[in-house]
Amino acid sequence: MVNKIGIVSLSSGILGESFIKHELEIGKERLNKYGIEIEFLPNALKGVDFIKNHPESRADDLLTAFKDDSIDMILCAIGGDDTYRLLPYLFENNELENIVKQKIFLGFSDTTINHFMLNKVGVRTFYGQAFLTDVCELSNEMLPYTKKYFEELITTGKIKEVRPSDVWYQEREDFSENAVGTDMEKYTNDGFELLSGKPVFKGKILGGCLESIYYVFDNTRFNDTVSVCSKYNLFPKLEDWKNKILLLETSEEKPAPELFRKMINTIKKYGIFDVLSGVLVGKPQNETYYDEYRKILLEEISNKDLSVVYNLNIGHATPRCIIPFGVDAEVDVCRQVIVFNY
């Protein structure tokens, strides 16, 4: 049972900006209704500019949250684009490894990189939701599917199984106070889709946002992502991916099909698709490029024995489930379920 949540801004500092104060208040009220104490780590609310210019302060917050035994769960405010900058402050002198302990860590998007950091030091984490995007949802309640998994995590500390959502939502464009209490348009969801391979497969899951993973291998966004990530051996070695399941999902930037193909090919060159037991792919936001991405996955993943499952409700398409990393999982597309064995 989670009694206290520590909220961290490890990527973007938007949580500290005045224009989202109404969202912040909604989130605080919802967590308080669960009887959960909330602690915003010292730098979490210092705003976009401070957070951008002080990666060492972001790293301090993460270390503080792990050191504080009263904090049961570390919840990321939101994603962003440069959390790789925390690497030197967490790994130069084994800072993270020296203090880390197993506790709930939840986030998605650029937080993918933080999941890889924690994977390096043996911590099992949870992927798929964040404070601002999910707990602070502007509807009168958290989205039912999202809420179900969040409640399971805060009450049991685990996720037992994941099934598809019955619906998916058109993303909000208005996050102002005027949008409080308004609902998003929703559509029928089709469930898990097997693109290739066997419908049943097993393995521990790791992965996240495709763009975040791509920038580990490519300097398009920042000129030092490749050198920094490689210096600290962020991305697991090929042998460490053997019999694992890779999770991939795309961001709200809705990458054009040409870029999607390039990103898939970049990780393909690493050799990863030759050693995995399966791949899980999230629904693209608003189903933009749904068919194009599907076609590219079929064309570029040349290992046709590899199980590839599409259309998971995870990451940047709402609603969102939560997927445990580092836990034995069995995917069964026939039964439309992923079961986790702790």
Rank of each mutant, 00 (worst) to 15 (best):
K67R: 15
L90V: 08
C76V: 08
D134G: 10
T133G: 15
L87K: 07
N53D: 15
K120H: 03
D72I: 07
D110L: 05
K52S: 14
I78S: 14
G80Q: 05
K120V: 04
K101M: 01
I74G: 05
F66H: 14
D134H: 13
R124E: 13
K103C: 10
G47E: 09
T125F: 11
D68Q: 03
L86N: 07
A130W: 06
S109E: 04
L62A: 09
V48R: 15
A65S: 11
D60T: 10
T111Y: 10
L87W: 01
Y89I: 10
L75Q: 03
F105H: 12
E97V: 00
R85K: 15
Q129W: 12
M73C: 08
E95G: 05
P88T: 08
F50T: 05
K120P: 07
V100D: 08
E97Y: 11
G107L: 04
N94G: 10
E95W: 05
V48K: 15
G107P: 11
G107T: 05
V135R: 04
G47H: 06
D69N: 13
Y84K: 11
Y127K: 01
I71C: 10
I71H: 02
Y89L: 07
V135E: 08
L96Y: 07
F91G: 04
L132K: 07
E92C: 00
G122Q: 04
I74Y: 02
D81G: 15
E95H: 12
D72W: 06
F116Q: 05
I78R: 06
I99K: 03
T133F: 07
D72R: 03
H115R: 10
E56T: 03
N53M: 10
H54R: 09
E97L: 02
R58C: 14
L45T: 14
G128N: 07
L86W: 00
L132N: 07
H54P: 04
S109I: 13
G80V: 13
N93C: 05
P55V: 12
M117P: 01
G79P: 01
E56Q: 15
D60L: 12
D69Y: 03
D49M: 05
F105D: 10
I113Y: 02
D72Y: 08
A65G: 11
L75A: 10
K67L: 06
S109A: 09
G47P: 13
E92V: 03
K103P: 12
I113N: 03
I71M: 06
E95V: 11
F91H: 06
L106G: 13
V100L: 00
M73D: 05
F66N: 05
A77T: 08
I113V: 15
V123A: 11
K52T: 11
I99G: 04
E97R: 14
E95F: 02
T64G: 09
M73L: 15
D81N: 14
